[in-house]
Computed example of a mutant assay.
Amino acid sequence: MAKVVLKTFEREQLPLVEPWFHDADTQRWLGGPEWPREMLDLTDLPLGTFRGKTQTDRHRWLAWQGRCPVGYIDCGTFDRFTEWEGGENGRGVIDTLPLPTASLGYVIRPELRHQGYGAAMLDIVTRAPELHEIRLFVAGVDRRNAASIGCLLKAGYQPLNDQPDWEGMVYYARLRTARDATNGYSSSS
């Protein structure tokens, strides 16, 4: 596979990405075609708190191989990682990892799945200069989403807890390593 490059996702690129969200698997695991537009709409809103952690920034990238967009990553950064118990009798924050954290959501162009693009994106994002202060990269995955779990494992992410949370999600994480800080990064704005 040729090198994957991350480039900042711009509003005029919505027509490239929105069709990916008509795919049944994408809708099942992430959301419908309005999702990338809603993420862009957050850009100008103030940062806030979410489930016991303070948001520090927002990033969105398209992954490219040559001139072909192959995937999308949405990334919110936070002052820490929290395990949250919601629902009717939820207790709120039940555990904390006090590390600057990137919370990732991603999708691969449907016709290009199972070719290594997801693992490549999840690996390269750990070296993004915009995320230099981040120590922990986390993605929550429904325990039934075998393809995404395989992608995360291939990229060096491991489950923080094998038991799903109150929403049925298992969180996979990767710590930033010295290798991440020194290896090359392919990105452009």
Results as ranks from 00 to 15, higher is better:
33 P>Y: 01
178 A>D: 13
187 S>I: 11
35 W>K: 09
150 G>C: 15
106 Y>R: 00
136 L>H: 00
76 G>Q: 15
155 A>C: 04
58 R>F: 03
138 V>K: 01
169 M>L: 11
142 D>I: 09
68 C>E: 11
124 I>K: 07
97 L>R: 13
7 K>G: 07
87 G>P: 15
78 F>C: 04
33 P>W: 00
157 Y>C: 04
181 A>D: 12
179 R>W: 06
141 V>P: 15
147 A>T: 07
142 D>E: 11
7 K>R: 10
101 T>P: 09
114 H>D: 10
165 D>L: 04
40 L>Q: 03
74 D>T: 05
144 R>K: 13
47 L>N: 03
49 T>E: 14
4 V>T: 06
12 E>D: 10
11 R>P: 11
135 R>S: 03
40 L>T: 02
71 G>M: 12
83 E>P: 07
80 R>S: 06
65 Q>C: 14
9 F>A: 02
127 R>F: 09
103 S>R: 04
169 M>W: 06
66 G>V: 01
34 E>P: 13
125 V>Q: 05
20 W>I: 02
126 T>H: 10
147 A>R: 11
9 F>N: 03
41 D>C: 08
144 R>M: 12
2 A>I: 09
6 L>G: 03
78 F>P: 07
45 L>Q: 06
179 R>H: 06
101 T>G: 02
67 R>N: 06
18 E>R: 02
78 F>E: 02
163 Q>S: 07
29 W>H: 02
60 R>P: 05
117 Y>E: 07
4 V>E: 09
187 S>E: 12
26 T>M: 10
94 I>V: 13
43 T>H: 07
100 P>M: 13
152 L>A: 04
89 N>R: 08
